[in-house]
């Protein structure tokens, strides 16, 4: 299960001098089990803040985040997290990076490596099992980061602009692979992006946030069948509507 209920989530930061900065303003949101949701919004709208609150990495919020009936108060192994980049431990090779979480659970070594191998296969990097992150390309590193997050078998996967630093071709390829992984593993995925194209290609629903303070501006269901064709007219229409919404600063 991976059902997430967010109610009245508000987060503000007290600056050293100056007024209080409201990053998120009364966000309420439901994400269904096995759903793929993209959170889209201009930079500075609090997308990452929202994701970090869901992950339990930040505290000091008001409102509630409930995963499968349990309030989130700190990092939990039911939640996997993929950062934007540079999150692989450079001193561990690919296998040991993927096995890190299992090692923390004190799983025996052969079991750790068996599970790591399985996820390495899922992301198609079996031949790089013993490589160090510095020897991998940006796309491969993010594949490893996905495998590492999945290795603990979380119910929900949070992804913070994971393909943002990649070139367009690699990015498209990884989007396709991610959908395949999602279909195989059936996790709930919350994916942050500022690319409308990426959001329309990937998600079941797009949650558009307004500029600061971040509020839910509109929820756009994407009913196109997968695999989606980026050049189809329906795709283009959806993309244009959402772009218009963002460029009008969410005035509907």
């Amino acid at each position: 299960m991976g059902r997430l209920v967010i109610r009245d989530l508000t987060q503000s930061f007290q600056k050293d001098c100056g007024p209080e900065l409201v990053a998120l303003d009364h966000i309420s949101l439901d994400v269904d089990d096995k759903e793929f949701v993209c959170i889209l919004g201009p930079s500075g709208c609090g997308k990452t803040t929202l994701l970090r609150l869901i992950a339990g990495l930040d505290t000091g919020r008001s409102g509630s985040v409930v995963l499968d009936g349990e309030e989130i108060r700190g990092p939990s192994q039911k939640i996997g997290f993929v950062f934007q980049e540079y999150s692989l431990f450079p001193w561990r090779n690919v296998t040991d990076n993927i096995a890190f979480g299992l090692e923390m659970q004190k799983k025996p070594r052969d079991e750790r490596y068996r599970i790591a191998e399985q996820y390495l296969k899922l992301v198609g990097l079996t031949q790089f099992a013993n490589s160090y992150p510095s020897e991998l390309s940006g796309g491969m590193r993010q594949r490893v980061a996905v495998a590492r997050a999945l290795a603990l078998d979380p119910v929900i996967l949070l992804m913070d602009e994971p393909f943002g630093a990649l070139d367009a071709q690699t990015r498209n390829m990884l989007q396709k692979e991610l959908l395949e992984i999602w279909e195989k593993t059936r996790k709930t995925i919350i994916f942050i992006t500022h690319s409308v194209d990426e959001a329309v290609y990937l998600s079941d629903r797009i949650i558009v946030l307004s500029p600061r303070p971040g509020r839910v501006c509109k929820i756009v269901p994407i009913d196109l069948p997968r695999p989606r064709n980026r050049t189809s007219t329906e795709f283009a229409t959806l993309r244009r509507d959402i772009l218009d919404l963002i460029s009008d600063n969410c005035v509907v």
Partner: peptide, 11 residues
């Protein structure tokens, strides 16, 4: 990011 990654992975 390393510390946060560690925390997310149960450390």
């Amino acid at each position: 990011i390393f510390v946060e990654t560690g925390r997310m992975l149960g450390c």
